[in-house]
Simulated assay, not measured.
Amino acid sequence: MTLHTSAEKSRTKQWTVRLDLFEQGDLTKVHAVLDTGDTTLQSRTSAQRNPHDAPVPEIGDEYAAGRALIDLGNQLLRAGSTDAAPSR
C-alpha cells in the first residue's frame, strides 16, 4: 500500500493546442496539433456544408474543429491505456 502525504510535490504543466482552419468553398478543413511537451499528437478533419443549408462559415469551423478535438481526445485516451498497461 502506498501512503500519500501532504509533503508530496505538486506539478504544473502546460499543453498547447493549435487549430489551423482552411476553408475551400463549402468544405472546412482543420489541422489540430497537441503539444504536451513530451509528445505531439495531430489530427486532420473536415466538415462539408450541406448544399441546402445557409452558408454560415462559423458552423463549418465548429464542426470541423470539434471533430479534430474529439479525435485528439481519443488519441490521448488510447495513449493513456497503452501507457497504463502492464509490461509483458
Rank of each mutant, 00 (worst) to 15 (best):
V17M: 01
V17A: 00
V17W: 00
V17G: 02
V17S: 10
R18A: 15
R18M: 12
R18S: 15
R18H: 04
R18E: 07
R18L: 12
L19T: 15
L19N: 07
L19A: 02
L19F: 11
L19C: 15
L19E: 10
D20G: 01
D20F: 03
D20T: 09
L21T: 15
L21P: 05
F22W: 15
F22P: 03
F22I: 15
E23W: 02
E23C: 09
E23F: 01
E23Y: 04
Q24M: 08
Q24N: 07
Q24V: 08
Q24S: 08
Q24A: 13
Q24P: 01
Q24G: 13
G25I: 13
G25P: 06
G25F: 09
D26V: 12
D26R: 00
D26S: 02
D26P: 09
D26G: 04
D26A: 07
L27N: 10
L27P: 14
T28Q: 09
T28G: 07
T28L: 06
T28C: 04
K29P: 00
K29L: 05
K29S: 08
K29Y: 06
K29T: 07
V30P: 06
V30R: 09
H31M: 07
H31K: 14
H31S: 01
H31F: 00
A32H: 11
A32Y: 04
A32Q: 08
A32G: 12
A32I: 05
A32P: 15
V33K: 06
V33R: 12
V33G: 08
V33M: 05
V33T: 13
L34E: 02
L34M: 13
L34V: 15
L34T: 14
L34R: 00
D35T: 14
D35Y: 03
D35I: 02
D35E: 11
D35C: 15
D35S: 12
T36R: 07
T36L: 04
T36S: 07
G37R: 06
G37F: 03
G37K: 11
D38M: 07
D38S: 13
T39Y: 07
T39E: 14
T39M: 04
T40L: 00
T40F: 02
T40E: 02
L41Y: 01
L41F: 02
L41D: 10
L41A: 06
Q42A: 02
Q42Y: 03
Q42E: 15
S43E: 14
S43D: 15
S43Q: 10
S43V: 04
S43W: 02
S43Y: 11
R44H: 06
R44G: 00
R44F: 01
R44C: 01
R44S: 01
R44W: 10
T45Q: 10
T45H: 09
T45M: 00
T45F: 03
T45Y: 05
S46M: 10
S46D: 10
S46R: 10
S46Y: 08
S46W: 10
S46E: 11
A47N: 11
A47C: 09
Q48G: 08
Q48P: 14
Q48I: 04
Q48N: 14
R49L: 00
R49D: 06
R49C: 01
R49K: 08
R49E: 11
R49Q: 13
